[in-house]
């Protein structure tokens, strides 16, 4: 897989949830450059091109990161902290994936610089809404591709 032209990085520990998200996006034709990592640690490796992803070009950042919060080892909040704490990555838009809009971590994530959130399961409508908030119209326009 070409990890250099990743448009959307999905960070999700649950395969079921990840598959639902991927399926939903694919069904709407915007999943050409989706990449899924299973936990926070792998996500950090991918983003910062380290570990298993050290061969990846650092300069080709994902266009969008969908970040689950509840994950083993390194959780979403920590990942977000790292992304937004680094000048090279802090401009990457991050959409938080959450089970409930009541989640107290949402507030914390916005403070850390998260750009939007989507309640799981990620249906296309929710995704479009979140992406619109970011001004990423090209993604939706692109769906026909």
């Amino acid at each position: 897989m070409d990890t250099h032209a990743i448009e959307i990085l999905i960070v999700e520990d649950s395969m079921d949830d990840a598959n639902l998200t991927i399926r939903s996006l694919k069904k709407n034709n915007i999943a050409n450059n989706l990449y899924h990592v299973k936990d926070g640690a792998e996500a950090l490796d991918f983003i910062f091109a380290q570990g298993n992803y050290s061969s990846r070009s650092k300069s080709a950042n994902p266009k969008l990161i969908l970040l689950d919060l509840k994950m083993p080892k390194v959780n979403g909040v920590e990942v977000l902290e790292k992304i937004k704490g680094n000048p090279a990555t802090k401009t990457i838009p991050v959409v938080i994936l959450t089970s409930s809009q009541e989640d107290p971590d949402i507030k914390r994530c916005y403070e850390l610089g998260a750009n939007s959130y989507v309640t799981k399961p990620v249906e296309f409508e929710g995704f479009v809404k979140a992406v619109k908030e970011l001004g990423f119209y090209w993604m939706i326009l692109n769906k026909a591709l």
């Binding site: 079921d16 949830d17 399926r23 509840k70 089970s99 009541e102 107290p104 799981k120 399961p121």
Partner: peptide
């Protein structure tokens, strides 16, 4: 209590989401 509530919210929802979403599929 808060963390319990959150756990319930998250942990009960995850399997439910699976049941619901995959049944829909």
């Amino acid at each position: 209590l808060e963390s319990f509530t959150y756990s319930v919210s998250h942990d009960l929802r995850a399997p439910l989401r699976g049941i619901n979403s995959y049944t829909k599929i």
